[in-house]
Design a binder for these strands. Structure first.
Length: 425
RNA sequence: GGAGAGAUGGCUGAGUUGGUCGAAAGCGCUCGCCUCGAAAGCGAGUAGGCGGGGAACCGCCUCGUGGGUUCGAAUCCCACUCUCUCCGCCA
């Protein structure tokens, strides 16, 4: 959510932002009109409330001295009625104002390239080269099925499409990657691990920006105001919702493993095979709460932290900076890590790292006090995948496959696999 | 699921026969005095949001959340949420 006062005094900046993102700017004019109306009502209502408060104090005094206050009381009866009407109108205007404000995306950082869609994203750097095979490589869904470590058919029997059963070494690989990632981030990158609820409530989903605009992307629990978390970003960021943090504690860096659940509404027919697009997947997420002055430095470090996983697993990847048309609703700046996926013959997103600046913090009311006695300010929040486990497994199987259909385990992962060096039939 | 208790400022904790209560007191924190310096002691200050105004400053709102009663609600009524205790059930 943008700061209403900022929008009021910088409407051109917001209009420019909406245009660069390819969004309609009509909402902005509607917003400004509603804001003006709101303040007009406030001025009138507050003046009446002041009069009522003064009269109340007067009545209290008169009651004590035994004077007759009935004329003031009947006068205030009318004033209170008028206040009630204004408050009702105010509530209506504010509700509409909030609806509009919740629907306005963040303002892209000046370093973000202007572009319409993903075709205008900018590759920032590459690491490694696309894997070259001396044989015909298999896609991960065939490898996994042939090795009997992935079972898509039985998963669809249990639940439906876009689910998988990991089996044997495959199941162990899930645990190994989660542990490897969490250990690396906690032991070498300075994150504190948390294990949050996988179900989130409405306020949390509003806090990070999933609601109200993207309700159809989540699974909702019937009869409850709970949703299955689409990413650990939601529960972890909302840990500190409504709090004023001690400035000394910043930056707060958390990593968390959670299962993630996405309805994938609007993705029908895309990536239907394999592990790339599942309704349920595992992910280790990195979340930071930082001082506004350092959030862009922290973003670069966050990307590096996520990259370190790919480097250790020796998976070729590239880092892409999202353009204004693809930066995401809540983000001011976003990098994607894209891993080389031989079956797709292209790079596929495996991590998304964003700086939200104060956009989420304002929604979720997360502040910090720079020093004792100083005024509380909004923190900047960041998060990024470190990494998505399902896609990591897909990339691992495909890039580390051998001519005989087996898959080597990257050296650093072997300890987490009980010493296993390869997955064989 | 049943019964009971509770939810107040950064923290602890008063206030529930409605009337200067945004709120006592203590702790913490900030500044000043004292001191060579510190501690102790003394003094002052110390919630957040919104709005008006050039500013000084002024006003409004907030005592879990949302409604209601009333001229007026932290205090009364209703609903909900959360925490704690006991019982039941249960991995």
């Amino acid at each position: 959510m943008l700061d209403l006062k900022f929008v009021r005094s910088n409407p051109d900046v917001v209009r420019d932002s909406l245009t660069k993102r390819g969004e309609n700017t009509d909402v902005l004019d509607d917003l400004l009109a509603k804001d003006e109306r709101r303040r007009a009502i406030l001025v009138e209502a507050e003046d009446l409330k002041r009069r009522r408060n003064e009269a109340s104090a007067q009545v209290a005094k008169m009651k004590q001295t035994g004077e007759d206050a009935s004329s003031i009381i009947s006068e205030m009866r009318v004033v209170s009625e008028r206040i009630r009407g204004l408050d009702q109108e105010l509530a209506d205007v504010e509700m509409r104002l909030a609806e509009i404000l919740f629907g306005i995306p963040n303002i892209p950082h000046e370093s973000v390239p202007v572009g319409r869609d993903e075709s205008e994203n900018v590759v920032v750097r590459k690491w490694g080269e696309p894997t070259v095979f001396g044989f015909e490589p298999k896609p991960h869904w065939d490898l996994g099925t042939d090795l009997d470590i992935l079972d898509f058919e039985r998963a669809s029997k249990i639940t439906g499409s876009r689910f998988v059963v990991y089996k044997g070494a495959g199941s162990k690989l899930v645990r190994a990657l989660i542990n490897f990632m969490l250990d690396l981030h906690t032991q070498e990158n300075g994150y504190t691990e948390v294990f949050p609820p996988f179900l989130i409530n409405r306020e949390s989903a509003i806090g990070t920006g999933q609601l109200p605009k993207f309700a159809e992307d989540m699974f909702k629990c019937e009869g409850l105001d709970y949703y299955l978390a689409p990413t650990a970003e939601v529960p972890v960021t909302n840990m500190y919702r409504g709090e004023i943090l001690d400035g000394e504690l910043l930056p707060i860096k958390h990593c968390a493993y959670t299962a993630c659940f996405r309805s994938e509404a609007g993705s029908a027919g895309r990536d239907t095979r394999g592990l790339i697009r599942q309704h349920q997947f595992d992910k280790v997420e990195l979340v930071k709460f930082v001082h506004p002055d350092s959030s862009y430095d922290e973003l670069e470090r966050l990307v590096n932290d996520a990259e370190s996983i790919l480097q250790i697993l020796n998976l070729p990847y590239q880092v892409t900076m999202m353009c204004t048309g693809d930066v995401g609703f809540a983000a001011a700046k976003k990098y994607d890590l894209e891993v080389w996926m031989p079956s797709y013959n292209r790079y596929v997103e495996i991590s998304s790292c964003s700086n939200f600046e104060a956009f989420q913090a304002r929604r979720a009311d997360i502040k910090f006090r720079p020093a004792p006695g100083e005024r509380a300010e909004l923190v900047h929040t960041l998060n990024g995948s470190g990494l998505a486990v399902g896609r990591t497994i897909a990339a691992l199987l495909e890039n580390w496959q051998q001519p005989d259909g087996s898959v080597k385990i990257p050296p650093r992962l072997r300890a987490f696999m009980g010493g296993m060096e390869a997955i064989t039939r």
